[in-house]
Design a protein around this nucleic acid. Sequence first.
DNA 1: GGCTTTTTCTAGACTTTGTCTAAAGTTCTT
DNA 2: AAGAACTTTAGACAAAGTCTAGAAAAAGCC
Lengths: 140, 140
Amino acid sequence: MSTENHQYRGQLIERLKAAGVTPTQQRVEIAAILFVRDQHMSADQVLALVNESSPRVSKATVYNTLGLFAKTGLVREVIVDPTKVFYDSNTTAHHHFYNADTGQLMDIDPAAVEIASLPTLPEGTVAEGVDVIIRIRQAH
Amino acid sequence: MSTENHQYRGQLIERLKAAGVTPTQQRVEIAAILFVRDQHMSADQVLALVNESSPRVSKATVYNTLGLFAKTGLVREVIVDPTKVFYDSNTTAHHHFYNADTGQLMDIDPAAVEIASLPTLPEGTVAEGVDVIIRIRQAH
DNA sequence: GGCTTTTTCTAGACTTTGTCTAAAGTTCTT
DNA sequence: AAGAACTTTAGACAAAGTCTAGAAAAAGCC
Protein backbone atom coordinates (compact mmCIF):
# COMPACT_ATOMS: atom_id res chain seq x y z
CA MET A 1 0.00 0.00 0.00
CA SER A 2 1.25 3.46 -0.89
CA THR A 3 2.20 6.02 1.75
CA GLU A 4 -0.68 8.31 0.75
CA ASN A 5 -3.16 5.50 1.08
CA HIS A 6 -1.70 4.58 4.43
CA GLN A 7 -2.06 8.11 5.70
CA TYR A 8 -5.59 8.37 4.35
CA ARG A 9 -6.55 5.23 6.22
CA GLY A 10 -5.08 6.66 9.40
CA GLN A 11 -7.28 9.72 9.03
CA LEU A 12 -10.32 7.56 8.40
CA ILE A 13 -9.66 5.53 11.54
CA GLU A 14 -9.50 8.72 13.57
CA ARG A 15 -12.72 9.94 12.01
CA LEU A 16 -14.55 6.72 12.88
CA LYS A 17 -13.19 6.72 16.42
CA ALA A 18 -14.26 10.35 16.88
CA ALA A 19 -17.79 9.28 16.00
CA GLY A 20 -17.59 6.43 18.53
CA VAL A 21 -17.40 3.73 15.86
CA THR A 22 -14.90 0.89 16.24
CA PRO A 23 -12.75 1.04 13.11
CA THR A 24 -12.87 -2.52 11.87
CA GLN A 25 -11.31 -3.62 8.58
CA GLN A 26 -14.64 -3.58 6.76
CA ARG A 27 -15.81 -0.26 8.13
CA VAL A 28 -12.56 1.42 7.14
CA GLU A 29 -12.89 -0.15 3.69
CA ILE A 30 -16.35 1.34 3.28
CA ALA A 31 -15.33 4.69 4.74
CA ALA A 32 -12.44 4.81 2.26
CA ILE A 33 -14.93 4.65 -0.58
CA LEU A 34 -17.48 7.07 0.85
CA PHE A 35 -15.15 9.75 2.12
CA VAL A 36 -12.78 10.33 -0.81
CA ARG A 37 -15.02 13.21 -1.79
CA ASP A 38 -18.51 14.62 -1.20
CA GLN A 39 -20.84 12.26 -2.97
CA HIS A 40 -24.13 10.40 -2.94
CA MET A 41 -24.09 6.62 -3.10
CA SER A 42 -26.63 3.85 -2.75
CA ALA A 43 -25.87 0.74 -0.70
CA ASP A 44 -25.70 -1.15 -3.96
CA GLN A 45 -23.02 1.10 -5.38
CA VAL A 46 -20.96 0.85 -2.21
CA LEU A 47 -21.27 -2.92 -2.27
CA ALA A 48 -20.12 -3.09 -5.88
CA LEU A 49 -17.16 -0.74 -5.36
CA VAL A 50 -15.95 -2.28 -2.14
CA ASN A 51 -15.81 -5.66 -3.80
CA GLU A 52 -13.84 -4.51 -6.81
CA SER A 53 -10.64 -4.75 -4.81
CA SER A 54 -9.51 -7.74 -2.78
CA PRO A 55 -10.97 -7.76 0.75
CA ARG A 56 -14.57 -8.67 0.21
CA VAL A 57 -17.29 -7.22 2.38
CA SER A 58 -20.66 -8.95 2.61
CA LYS A 59 -23.96 -7.38 1.70
CA ALA A 60 -25.20 -7.53 5.30
CA THR A 61 -22.11 -5.69 6.52
CA VAL A 62 -22.48 -2.95 3.93
CA TYR A 63 -26.07 -2.38 5.01
CA ASN A 64 -25.20 -2.56 8.71
CA THR A 65 -22.27 -0.21 8.29
CA LEU A 66 -24.18 2.38 6.30
CA GLY A 67 -26.92 2.27 8.92
CA LEU A 68 -24.34 2.71 11.67
CA PHE A 69 -22.64 5.58 9.85
CA ALA A 70 -26.01 7.28 9.44
CA LYS A 71 -26.89 6.81 13.11
CA THR A 72 -23.58 8.26 14.26
CA GLY A 73 -23.71 11.21 11.90
CA LEU A 74 -20.84 10.15 9.64
CA VAL A 75 -23.14 10.17 6.63
CA ARG A 76 -26.61 11.46 5.94
CA GLU A 77 -29.45 9.43 4.52
CA VAL A 78 -31.24 11.08 1.64
CA ILE A 79 -34.65 9.70 0.78
CA VAL A 80 -35.78 10.86 -2.64
CA ASP A 81 -36.03 7.75 -4.73
CA PRO A 82 -38.71 5.25 -3.78
CA THR A 83 -36.49 2.33 -4.75
CA LYS A 84 -33.31 3.02 -2.79
CA VAL A 85 -31.76 5.24 -0.15
CA PHE A 86 -28.76 7.43 -0.87
CA TYR A 87 -25.95 8.06 1.57
CA ASP A 88 -24.43 11.51 1.43
CA SER A 89 -20.85 11.90 2.62
CA ASN A 90 -21.38 15.65 2.95
CA THR A 91 -22.94 16.09 6.39
CA THR A 92 -22.98 19.88 6.44
CA ALA A 93 -26.42 21.51 6.17
CA HIS A 94 -27.54 21.57 2.56
CA HIS A 95 -30.38 20.57 0.30
CA HIS A 96 -30.81 18.62 -2.94
CA PHE A 97 -31.89 18.64 -6.51
CA TYR A 98 -33.22 15.31 -7.62
CA ASN A 99 -33.50 14.61 -11.32
CA ALA A 100 -36.07 11.83 -11.61
CA ASP A 101 -35.22 11.31 -15.31
CA THR A 102 -31.55 10.58 -14.73
CA GLY A 103 -31.72 9.45 -11.10
CA GLN A 104 -29.05 11.99 -10.29
CA LEU A 105 -28.86 13.70 -6.93
CA MET A 106 -27.07 17.05 -6.69
CA ASP A 107 -26.21 19.36 -3.83
CA ILE A 108 -27.74 22.80 -3.70
CA ASP A 109 -25.54 25.63 -2.52
CA PRO A 110 -26.76 26.22 1.08
CA ALA A 111 -26.77 29.97 0.46
CA ALA A 112 -29.20 29.61 -2.44
CA VAL A 113 -32.14 28.29 -0.42
CA GLU A 114 -33.46 30.32 2.40
CA ILE A 115 -36.22 29.11 4.64
CA ALA A 116 -37.73 32.16 6.26
CA SER A 117 -40.01 30.47 8.78
CA LEU A 118 -40.60 27.05 10.22
CA PRO A 119 -43.78 25.74 11.86
CA THR A 120 -44.10 24.77 15.51
CA LEU A 121 -43.69 21.03 15.97
CA PRO A 122 -46.47 18.69 17.08
CA GLU A 123 -46.69 18.14 20.86
CA GLY A 124 -44.18 15.72 22.30
CA THR A 125 -41.88 15.66 19.29
CA VAL A 126 -38.46 17.05 18.49
CA ALA A 127 -37.02 17.96 15.12
CA GLU A 128 -34.46 15.66 13.52
CA GLY A 129 -33.81 17.73 10.44
CA VAL A 130 -35.34 19.55 7.54
CA ASP A 131 -35.00 18.14 4.05
CA VAL A 132 -35.68 20.28 1.04
CA ILE A 133 -35.80 18.44 -2.26
CA ILE A 134 -36.29 20.21 -5.53
CA ARG A 135 -37.53 17.66 -8.02
CA ILE A 136 -36.47 18.42 -11.55
CA ARG A 137 -36.60 16.72 -14.93
CA GLN A 138 -35.01 17.13 -18.32
CA ALA A 139 -36.45 20.02 -20.33
CA HIS A 140 -38.27 18.30 -23.23
CA MET B 1 -76.34 1.70 -2.31
CA SER B 2 -77.50 4.80 -0.41
CA THR B 3 -78.35 8.07 -2.14
CA GLU B 4 -75.41 9.88 -0.56
CA ASN B 5 -73.06 7.19 -1.75
CA HIS B 6 -74.54 7.37 -5.17
CA GLN B 7 -74.03 11.12 -5.34
CA TYR B 8 -70.49 10.81 -4.02
CA ARG B 9 -69.66 8.36 -6.78
CA GLY B 10 -71.11 10.73 -9.36
CA GLN B 11 -68.79 13.45 -8.12
CA LEU B 12 -65.83 11.10 -8.20
CA ILE B 13 -66.57 10.14 -11.78
CA GLU B 14 -66.64 13.80 -12.76
CA ARG B 15 -63.36 14.36 -10.97
CA LEU B 16 -61.66 11.50 -12.79
CA LYS B 17 -63.03 12.61 -16.15
CA ALA B 18 -61.83 16.16 -15.52
CA ALA B 19 -58.33 14.76 -15.05
CA GLY B 20 -58.63 12.83 -18.31
CA VAL B 21 -58.93 9.46 -16.58
CA THR B 22 -61.53 6.97 -17.76
CA PRO B 23 -63.65 6.22 -14.70
CA THR B 24 -63.65 2.44 -14.60
CA GLN B 25 -65.25 0.47 -11.77
CA GLN B 26 -61.94 -0.16 -10.07
CA ARG B 27 -60.65 3.38 -10.39
CA VAL B 28 -63.83 4.79 -8.88
CA GLU B 29 -63.54 2.22 -6.09
CA ILE B 30 -60.02 3.39 -5.30
CA ALA B 31 -60.93 7.06 -5.67
CA ALA B 32 -63.82 6.54 -3.23
CA ILE B 33 -61.31 5.43 -0.60
CA LEU B 34 -58.69 8.09 -1.27
CA PHE B 35 -60.91 11.11 -1.63
CA VAL B 36 -63.25 10.84 1.35
CA ARG B 37 -60.89 13.22 3.13
CA ASP B 38 -57.37 14.63 2.92
CA GLN B 39 -55.11 11.76 3.88
CA HIS B 40 -51.88 9.89 3.26
CA MET B 41 -52.07 6.26 2.27
CA SER B 42 -49.64 3.63 1.06
CA ALA B 43 -50.53 1.30 -1.82
CA ASP B 44 -50.75 -1.48 0.72
CA GLN B 45 -53.34 0.33 2.78
CA VAL B 46 -55.42 1.12 -0.27
CA LEU B 47 -55.26 -2.50 -1.38
CA ALA B 48 -56.39 -3.72 2.05
CA LEU B 49 -59.26 -1.23 2.28
CA VAL B 50 -60.54 -1.69 -1.24
CA ASN B 51 -60.79 -5.40 -0.69
CA GLU B 52 -62.71 -5.16 2.57
CA SER B 53 -65.91 -4.65 0.62
CA SER B 54 -67.20 -6.82 -2.22
CA PRO B 55 -65.77 -5.82 -5.62
CA ARG B 56 -62.22 -7.01 -5.40
CA VAL B 57 -59.43 -5.06 -7.05
CA SER B 58 -56.13 -6.73 -7.85
CA LYS B 59 -52.75 -5.64 -6.56
CA ALA B 60 -51.56 -4.73 -10.05
CA THR B 61 -54.58 -2.50 -10.61
CA VAL B 62 -54.10 -0.70 -7.30
CA TYR B 63 -50.47 0.05 -8.22
CA ASN B 64 -51.36 1.03 -11.79
CA THR B 65 -54.20 3.25 -10.64
CA LEU B 66 -52.20 5.04 -7.97
CA GLY B 67 -49.46 5.64 -10.53
CA LEU B 68 -52.00 6.97 -13.00
CA PHE B 69 -53.62 9.22 -10.38
CA ALA B 70 -50.18 10.60 -9.51
CA LYS B 71 -49.34 11.23 -13.16
CA THR B 72 -52.59 13.06 -13.78
CA GLY B 73 -52.34 15.16 -10.64
CA LEU B 74 -55.24 13.56 -8.78
CA VAL B 75 -52.93 12.58 -5.94
CA ARG B 76 -49.43 13.50 -4.95
CA GLU B 77 -46.65 11.04 -4.23
CA VAL B 78 -44.79 11.69 -1.02
CA ILE B 79 -41.43 10.02 -0.63
CA VAL B 80 -40.28 10.08 2.97
CA ASP B 81 -40.14 6.46 4.03
CA PRO B 82 -37.50 4.29 2.38
CA THR B 83 -39.84 1.30 2.39
CA LYS B 84 -42.98 2.64 0.76
CA VAL B 85 -44.47 5.60 -1.04
CA PHE B 86 -47.39 7.55 0.33
CA TYR B 87 -50.19 8.97 -1.79
CA ASP B 88 -51.56 12.27 -0.59
CA SER B 89 -55.14 13.12 -1.55
CA ASN B 90 -54.48 16.77 -0.77
CA THR B 91 -52.91 18.17 -3.91
CA THR B 92 -52.74 21.80 -2.84
CA ALA B 93 -49.25 23.15 -2.15
CA HIS B 94 -48.13 22.11 1.31
CA HIS B 95 -45.32 20.37 3.12
CA HIS B 96 -44.96 17.54 5.62
CA PHE B 97 -43.89 16.45 9.03
CA TYR B 98 -42.67 12.89 9.08
CA ASN B 99 -42.43 11.11 12.39
CA ALA B 100 -39.96 8.30 11.84
CA ASP B 101 -40.82 6.73 15.21
CA THR B 102 -44.50 6.32 14.47
CA GLY B 103 -44.36 6.30 10.67
CA GLN B 104 -46.95 9.06 10.68
CA LEU B 105 -47.08 11.70 7.99
CA MET B 106 -48.76 15.03 8.77
CA ASP B 107 -49.54 18.11 6.76
CA ILE B 108 -47.91 21.38 7.63
CA ASP B 109 -50.01 24.51 7.37
CA PRO B 110 -48.76 26.10 4.12
CA ALA B 111 -48.62 29.50 5.82
CA ALA B 112 -46.20 28.20 8.44
CA VAL B 113 -43.30 27.46 6.09
CA GLU B 114 -41.92 30.20 3.99
CA ILE B 115 -39.17 29.62 1.49
CA ALA B 116 -37.57 32.98 0.85
CA SER B 117 -35.34 32.05 -2.08
CA LEU B 118 -34.82 29.19 -4.47
CA PRO B 119 -31.69 28.34 -6.43
CA THR B 120 -31.37 28.49 -10.19
CA LEU B 121 -31.89 25.08 -11.75
CA PRO B 122 -29.19 23.08 -13.52
CA GLU B 123 -28.96 23.69 -17.29
CA GLY B 124 -31.53 21.91 -19.38
CA THR B 125 -33.84 21.02 -16.52
CA VAL B 126 -37.22 22.22 -15.34
CA ALA B 127 -38.68 22.10 -11.84
CA GLU B 128 -41.32 19.53 -11.02
CA GLY B 129 -41.92 20.56 -7.44
CA VAL B 130 -40.37 21.41 -4.14
CA ASP B 131 -40.75 19.03 -1.22
CA VAL B 132 -40.04 20.15 2.30
CA ILE B 133 -39.99 17.41 4.88
CA ILE B 134 -39.45 18.11 8.53
CA ARG B 135 -38.30 14.91 10.14
CA ILE B 136 -39.34 14.61 13.74
CA ARG B 137 -39.27 11.95 16.45
CA GLN B 138 -40.85 11.39 19.83
CA ALA B 139 -39.30 13.50 22.60
CA HIS B 140 -37.44 10.93 24.82
C1' DG C 1 0.60 -14.69 26.60
C1' DG C 2 -3.77 -17.59 27.14
C1' DC C 3 -8.77 -17.61 28.22
C1' DT C 4 -13.37 -15.69 28.22
C1' DT C 5 -16.78 -12.45 26.78
C1' DT C 6 -18.43 -9.29 23.59
C1' DT C 7 -18.72 -7.49 19.21
C1' DT C 8 -18.64 -7.94 14.33
C1' DC C 9 -18.92 -10.40 9.96
C1' DT C 10 -20.73 -13.74 6.75
C1' DA C 11 -23.65 -16.66 3.52
C1' DG C 12 -27.76 -17.39 2.37
C1' DA C 13 -32.67 -17.63 3.40
C1' DC C 14 -36.32 -14.59 3.79
C1' DT C 15 -39.59 -10.41 3.50
C1' DT C 16 -41.64 -6.58 1.38
C1' DT C 17 -42.71 -3.34 -2.09
C1' DG C 18 -43.41 -2.97 -6.52
C1' DT C 19 -43.25 -4.57 -11.70
C1' DC C 20 -44.09 -7.60 -15.57
C1' DT C 21 -46.54 -10.88 -18.49
C1' DA C 22 -49.92 -13.05 -20.98
C1' DA C 23 -54.52 -14.08 -21.03
C1' DA C 24 -59.23 -12.62 -20.22
C1' DG C 25 -62.60 -9.03 -19.78
C1' DT C 26 -64.43 -4.17 -20.99
C1' DT C 27 -65.39 -0.43 -23.64
C1' DC C 28 -65.48 2.22 -27.80
C1' DT C 29 -66.09 2.78 -32.79
C1' DT C 30 -67.98 1.92 -36.81
C1' DA D 1 -72.10 -7.22 -34.24
C1' DA D 2 -67.12 -7.18 -35.23
C1' DG D 3 -62.80 -5.34 -34.48
C1' DA D 4 -59.59 -2.36 -32.14
C1' DA D 5 -57.96 -0.31 -28.10
C1' DC D 6 -57.83 -0.25 -23.38
C1' DT D 7 -58.15 -2.26 -18.68
C1' DT D 8 -57.95 -5.86 -15.27
C1' DT D 9 -56.24 -10.05 -13.35
C1' DA D 10 -53.38 -13.88 -11.14
C1' DG D 11 -49.33 -15.09 -10.37
C1' DA D 12 -44.41 -15.08 -11.57
C1' DC D 13 -40.68 -12.10 -11.00
C1' DA D 14 -37.26 -8.39 -9.42
C1' DA D 15 -34.76 -5.50 -6.26
C1' DA D 16 -33.79 -3.47 -1.81
C1' DG D 17 -33.17 -4.55 2.51
C1' DT D 18 -33.52 -7.65 6.94
C1' DC D 19 -32.74 -11.73 9.69
C1' DT D 20 -30.44 -15.80 11.48
C1' DA D 21 -27.12 -18.73 13.24
C1' DG D 22 -22.61 -19.83 13.15
C1' DA D 23 -17.60 -18.25 12.29
C1' DA D 24 -14.18 -14.78 13.06
C1' DA D 25 -12.22 -10.66 15.33
C1' DA D 26 -11.50 -7.79 18.95
C1' DA D 27 -11.45 -6.48 23.80
C1' DG D 28 -11.10 -7.44 28.67
C1' DC D 29 -8.96 -9.92 32.28
C1' DC D 30 -5.95 -12.69 34.97
